[in-house]
Amino acid sequence: MQRRGVVGALVVTGALVAGVGVWASGGGGGPAVADQQAQAVVKAVQGDLNTGFYAPGSIYGGLFSQGTLVEQVERHGGVLVSMASDRTRTVNQGVVLMDVQGKAACYALSFGLGAWTVRVTWQRCPADADLAVARGLLDHRLPDVAPVAPGQYAEDGAGVRALLLGTARTAQTGSDGASSASSAVLGVGTADGVLSAAARIRGVCYFVRMGGAAAAQSTVPLWQAPLDDQRTCGQSQAAAASGTYGEDAAQEG
């Protein structure tokens, strides 16, 4: 699985996505392009969940993070609107907004622990889904950020700032981007050995995840927060987003 994180640079405001007419539920029901993009996301998440015996030699599978979902949805022309999961990660439900640059449409995304559990269903967009912000997030996707190696950054506010600074420099956003990153951290917390943080850079909210079990340290460390977290952008939201999904079937036997 390719993994990346992003740092952006923009301030955006705009109109809300209007709810659209009710189509049939199931694997599609929305505009054609959005349906195709949503199905591509399904295949990507199925790949994330195919592990061990089910995907011998595959680059997919194993633990992945909300950052992975954000990456995959963005790669297919959409943004993650929201994501929620139960404590066991066996029931994960979210909303994605696809074809953001065209005839935007929303889909409920759900998955459990196996590839066969992944499903998307067309739904009316949430009333507060801001299409202008969503387009801005896609417009300002920047180069990949490699997973954080153990000990690469201090697991505190200084380490988060160093990660943001390094990403800004790699993306060649200039001294202004780097200086913005240095003062962007809004909150940092640690629970069960996992550091989570929220940062806002030129109006865009980002979540950071570092540390934890060795298998989870190869996950995306930095990503644009879901659309419904862009406004509040707090450490509590980052902590809620810091869990991992999936399982390593090879390890489970």
Results as ranks from 00 to 15, higher is better:
113 L>S: 14
79 V>W: 09
91 V>C: 04
94 G>E: 11
111 F>C: 01
91 V>Y: 00
84 A>L: 04
95 V>I: 08
99 D>S: 14
91 V>F: 07
111 F>M: 04
120 V>H: 13
97 L>G: 12
101 Q>A: 15
118 V>D: 03
94 G>L: 07
118 V>F: 04
91 V>I: 09
118 V>L: 01
116 W>G: 04
79 V>Y: 05
108 A>V: 11
108 A>Y: 11
80 L>R: 13
89 R>A: 14
93 Q>G: 05
113 L>R: 13
115 A>D: 14
109 L>H: 10
103 K>L: 09
85 S>Y: 06
120 V>Y: 15
84 A>P: 00
93 Q>H: 08
119 R>C: 07
80 L>H: 02
122 W>Y: 13
114 G>K: 08
116 W>H: 08
81 V>M: 03
99 D>G: 11
96 V>Y: 06
84 A>V: 01
118 V>E: 00
104 A>D: 05
121 T>I: 04
88 T>V: 07
107 Y>E: 02
100 V>K: 09
106 C>K: 10
91 V>P: 00
106 C>H: 07
83 M>G: 00
104 A>I: 02
102 G>E: 09
96 V>A: 01
122 W>I: 10
99 D>V: 15
93 Q>R: 14
123 Q>D: 04
84 A>N: 12
82 S>C: 07
98 M>Y: 13
80 L>W: 06
81 V>C: 08
80 L>E: 12
116 W>Y: 03
106 C>R: 07
104 A>K: 04
107 Y>C: 00
91 V>R: 02
87 R>A: 06
94 G>M: 09
102 G>H: 09
108 A>C: 02
111 F>Q: 02
98 M>R: 10
112 G>V: 14
115 A>R: 10
92 N>P: 03
86 D>K: 02
84 A>M: 02
92 N>W: 07
89 R>M: 14
91 V>G: 01
104 A>V: 03
110 S>Y: 06
83 M>T: 01
100 V>D: 10
116 W>L: 01
107 Y>I: 00
114 G>C: 03
96 V>N: 03
120 V>I: 15
109 L>Q: 13
114 G>R: 05
97 L>P: 09
96 V>F: 01
113 L>D: 05
117 T>R: 03
79 V>T: 12
118 V>A: 00
82 S>F: 09
108 A>D: 15
85 S>D: 12
92 N>F: 04
93 Q>C: 05
123 Q>G: 03
120 V>Q: 12
92 N>I: 12
116 W>R: 04
115 A>F: 14
103 K>W: 08
101 Q>G: 06
119 R>M: 05
98 M>T: 13
104 A>C: 01
97 L>C: 13
105 A>S: 08
120 V>T: 15
96 V>S: 02
89 R>W: 02
106 C>F: 15
80 L>T: 06
97 L>N: 10
87 R>G: 00
86 D>G: 07
93 Q>N: 14
97 L>E: 14
92 N>M: 09
120 V>C: 09
90 T>Q: 12
88 T>I: 03
99 D>P: 09
80 L>Q: 13
98 M>H: 09
86 D>A: 07
106 C>Q: 10
89 R>E: 07
87 R>H: 00
